[in-house]
Every structure is written in C-alpha cells, then in structure tokens.
C-alpha cells in the first residue's frame, strides 16, 4: 500500500505574515500518476506545491507546521529533515513562466545541474545525459542541430520544455508543475500536457492548474483546494463526472466566476 505513495502530506499549516494560507491539509499523492491540484486563485494551490519541495521557505515570514513525507527510492523521508538542495534535486519544480538560464546554451542549461551535483562527469557523459533528457522532454528533434544556441532564442513552449529537461537531468522522483502552460499557444500547451502524461511512467507528477479542462486531459487524480483546505480528492473521472462536494461542483462547472455564489455557499 505504502509503495504507491509518492508524497504524504499530514496536517499541513502554512502562514505568511501570520495569515494562515493552508489550514490543515491532509493528502496523499499516488506514485507514478498525474495528480492535478485545482482551485480558484488564492486558494493555496501553489503554496501546497511549494511546501512539498520546501521552496516555500524562500518566502519571508513563513511558518510551516505538519508533516510532509516524500518518496526517494524505496523509502518515505520527512521532507523537512532532508537537505533542501537534495530534496529539490529529487523533487523537481517547473515554474509557471519558463525560466531557463537565458545566456547559457541549450546544452548547458541541461548539463549544469548534473555537473554541479556530480550526477554525471565528463563532456561525453554529460552530452549523452542531455540528449536523453531533451528526448524525454520532447525537445531533442527541435534543438539537436543548435545545442550551442543561447536558450533565450527558443520559443516560450520550447523554453518550458527545456526547463523540464533541466529538471529531469537531476534524476528526480517527483516533478511539480506550477501552471506550466500559462501563456503558451495551443500547440505548445498540448505538447507539455502530453509530456506530463508520458512522464508518469518514470516519475510522479503533481501539477497545479487553473484549468479544469486541462486537469481532465492530464490527471489520474484531482485535488480541489479552496480557502486553504482540501475540499475533495479522487480519481479524475469521478471528480469531473460526479463530484461529492457541492463546492467542487460549483467550481468545476464555472458557476463561481464572480465569486458571489461560491462565497455564499461557504456560509
């Protein structure tokens, strides 16, 4: 049973400047699956994601309590007792806005992490690793003849896939995606979505998305967060067809656009 757990979050509370953002989240993310975290803006989706690899600690005046266990290899480890750099290597993060090192080459963007972390040594093995990860990220065919071009020359969608390749090069076990297709055109959005689904064969994928449609396309499981609380979690098909909670129903059917009815329902 525990073999299927990639991340286990227990009674997670997060406050920033004494304002409670996450209010006792309990959730288990299954291994080798795509879990989409959905919810309105400001509900705490990104905070939950950032708590998992402790990026949240970079925010000033943040307080975190509760427990987060992450699977690395055969064991579940307490994320908050691990070395943060090691944790972030094993739990990769892809940001909303592509953030490659703009002036480094495409190749160097992928190899710099493994080089610094000692994952691969020597030009040949680093280049081999880069090729492998660029292929996994579905970018190789588009860049194989221009590996020494600066990363900023790539399109937005290509830059995002480069960032994914960069995360993969660190041999993570879990990859966190924070609205990774924001601002991308339909073609690039579809490529990233296909990629997220393919990645679950080797990695656990947890993705924050503002789009219920996207969650439907990519997710095996859906978690709905509202007002810092986990409202519903379950298999994507059942959450989308017959959500158990009325708030989930209201949110995913888009009956909350002006927020009024949603707020009223909360009582």
């Amino acid at each position: 049973m525990l073999d299927n757990v990639a991340v286990s979050v227990k009674d997670l509370h997060v406050s920033i400047d004494n304002k409670e953002i996450l209010k006792g989240i309990n959730i288990t993310f299954p291994r080798y699956a795509v879990t989409a975290i959905i919810g309105p803006s400001g509900s705490g989706k990104t905070m939950l994601l950032r708590s998992i690899n402790r990026l949240i600690e970079l925010i000033p005046n943040v307080k975190v309590s509760g427990k987060i266990l992450v699977r690395i290899g055969d064991k579940l480890h307490d994320a908050y007792t691990l070395d943060p750099s090691y944790l972030r290597q094993k739990v990769g993060y892809v940001f909303q806005k592509p953030n490659p090192f703009p002036h480094l080459s495409i190749l160097k963007n992928v190899t710099i992490g493994p080089m610094l972390n000692g994952i691969a040594k020597g030009k040949k093995s680093l280049e081999k690793l880069a090729e492998e990860k660029l292929k996994e990220a579905g970018l190789w065919n588009e860049v194989k003849d221009r590996l020494h071009d600066a990363a900023w020359r790539l399109s937005g969608g290509q830059q995002q896939r480069l960032c994914i390749a960069r995360a993969l090069a660190l041999e993570p076990e879990i990859i966190l995606f924070d609205e990774p297709t924001t601002g991308l055109d339909l073609y690039n959005t579809k490529r990233i979505e296909e990629l997220m689904v393919r990645l679950k064969e080797k990695y656990t994928v947890i993705a924050v998305t503002h789009s219920v449609d996207q969650a439907g396309r990519i997710a095996d499981f859906i978690a709905f967060i509202y007002n810092g609380k986990l409202i519903e979690f379950g298999p994507a098909a059942s959450v989308l067809k017959s959500p158990v909670n009325e708030l989930t129903e209201l949110f995913i059917t888009g009956r909350v656009l002006d927020g009024v009815k949603f707020e009223k329902t909360l009582g």
Partner: peptide
C-alpha cells in the same frame, strides 16, 4: 464548453 459534473450528466 467541455462541461463537467452535473452539466455533463
């Protein structure tokens, strides 16, 4: 509209 939940049902 890619309806879900009660709309889809």
């Amino acid at each position: 509209y890619q309806p879900v939940a009660s709309d889809l049902r």
